[in-house]
Design a protein around this nucleic acid. Structure first.
Lengths: 329, 329
DNA sequence: ATGAGAAATACAAACGTTTGTATAATATTT
DNA sequence: AAATATTATACAAACGTTTGTATTTCTCAT
């Protein structure tokens, strides 16, 4: 494998000059620079990023930690991150935690070992607080949190405007004529779910509907739990639900059907996340689009700003209500 | 940041001994090893993977190149790869090509710069052959191809048994009683699609149905092209389709509905890929499951084998027909 | 022609490991 | 007790860059 030293020897220069030439430094005469670049190409030189990173003390690679990459939301957020990072000459190592605390710790340790330039993280459900991040990373590596953030951990965060998303969804159901609207609120007491619940409550309040705590179901937001909770909601007389997740909304639709209710005529629903299947179902499902790609882009931009030494602050990405058949009777 | 040299100085050993102790070498006395490990922990030592990789001449990181991570297939294949690689103490850098040749080249160059231990690649549609891989990587880094492989590029490959998948799908449609069965065959003349077409033809032949080339549509397999092709197929009298993709199958269902046909009573369909929406639709869509997680695992195992110097060979992963409502009248 | 200043390049150390070889310390054999 | 074998650790180079400083070479004004 050809090194800059080989090139230097072959041309009678020193490695330092070759290094600077290849880096495009103005400290080397244009003609020599060109000659060196040409020679490097001829000799089939490939820069060793390992050595360069070691010498520089930090890597040109960043780390992304997410619960799962096979969710619409996260894969698109990664897409946005990658796009912006690549544009700045940075790469990304991706780690999945599968919602497990120990895997999150493992990922952080590996990224620390690799002296990555920065870390983007969306927390695992199992992780209660951000103390492990402080412990492992400290402030040796800039960390940008997105979507699922640790409320106790300082630093820039990119989150959705969950309050307004849930507000719009609930309001749309009310306007469509549904009267007894419950909610599948999630069981992870993260900011995101709290905010969604608040948005739901505010929408009810603004439209003069009393809040009824018995119509709010705190459970995980899977298809199964959604089905079970919706069954209870229907038994309690609900004619609509705002669900903090799309899979639980799907379960709710199934529960409504099994209860002999027609969607959207007898029962309305709006989900959250706009998973691909939401628009492909029949009837199609209304959902709140989270704009994950944009969140990824924002997170990366905040990091790049921070890297340039500029002041950074957290960002809120607006959600977008996508009204489809399931919430329009 | 603490280094092994710091630990060595603090304890009166040399860096080499500390290095060996932390690596668990038997060349250092058990008691010293333990003492060093304890001290390292106390001092908050974090190994610098950059330095270690440089010295060793290769990285503990591998590279994964896929068209897009936000497809059911690829995100799960990555999941399988990661699971196996992590178990062997390896990490992965993921790159998306977005089906573009130039991005594939870029990814390969970056991975080469990083002297990754191995590369897993599923080719971009735009890439006609594997000459760029030979050119950039040569045999400096082991490459394992999966799913979308370059037929002209040697080395281990992990592919689906596309022939049998398509065969089973077509046969199921015949057995269900459909008579004039066309195919949405894809327009990318890769092995995968060719094999699917062959499987389709063989199933027809085995059931004594004549092959009619006019019922086979070579086009990309998007929802839109699927809709358009299915429209023609219906006009030509088809009562069923085997689609080489799920999105085109979805388009076909819409085309059938718009033509006043009921699915599956008047029109049957089986897709390929088993995207999440296939099971969530109404009627649910039959599809061939590609077992991407298993493909990822296999690819990683082949790589690990190769790394151990063992003989490796390509693998074929069976597909699984998931019969649902859309193909059963 | 000479000296100052600028431009171009050389020198050398450093980043933090790993690893082959050498040496010191201990154990074993005769 | 001396010679040998074994074990434990030290020494030093190397991986391929980057970068601060020193040196040489050139340019230009005096």
């Amino acid at each position: 494998m050809i090194t800059i030293t080989d090139i230097a020897h072959a041309m009678g220069y020193t490695p330092s000059t070759v290094s600077r030439a290849l880096a495009g430094s103005i400290r080397v005469k244009p003609e020599t620079r060109e000659a060196i670049v040409r020679k490097a190409y001829e000799m089939g030189y490939e820069r060793n990023a390992l050595a360069a990173n070691l010498r520089k003390g930090h890597s040109d690679t960043t780390g992304i930690i997410v619960p799962n990459i096979n969710r619409e939301f996260f894969s698109n957020a990664i897409g946005g991150l990658e796009f912006t990072l690549n544009g700045a000459g940075l790469n990304a190592m991706i780690f999945q935690t599968h919602e497990r605390y120990d895997m999150e710790v493992k990922a952080l340790e590996t990224l620390k070992e690799h002296r990555v330039a920065g870390i983007f993280i969306s927390k695992a459900l199992e992780s209660r607080d951000g103390s492990h991040i402080s412990r492992i990373i400290g402030n040796s590596i800039p960390v940008v949190q997105f979507d699922r953030v640790f409320s106790d951990l300082n630093g820039p965060k990119v989150v959705n405007d969950n309050f307004h998303g849930a507000y719009m969804a609930t309001r749309q159901l009310i306007i469509a004529g549904y009267r007894k609207i419950g909610s599948l609120a999630g069981n992870d007491f993260s900011e995101a779910y709290k905010e969604r619940l608040n948005g739901y409550r505010q929408a009810l309040a603004d439209e003069g509907i009393d809040y009824d705590g018995s119509l709010v179901f705190f459970d995980s937001i899977t298809r199964e739990t959604g089905y079970a909770s919706a069954k209870k909601a229907i038994a309690a007389g609900c004619d609509a639900l705002y669900s903090a997740g799309d899979f639980s909304a799907l379960g709710a639709i199934e529960a409504a059907r099994d209860a002999g209710l027609s969607v959207p005529k007898d029962f309305g629903i709006v989900g959250t996340g706009d998973e691909a299947f939401a628009s492909l179902m029949n009837p199609s499902m209304s959902s709140i689009f989270q704009n994950p790609y944009e969140m990824g882009r924002k997170a990366a931009e905040i990091f790049l700003k921070q890297q340039r030494g500029e002041q950074v602050e957290s960002a809120v990405v607006p959600m977008e209500l996508r009204v489809r058949e399931s919430s329009c009777r």
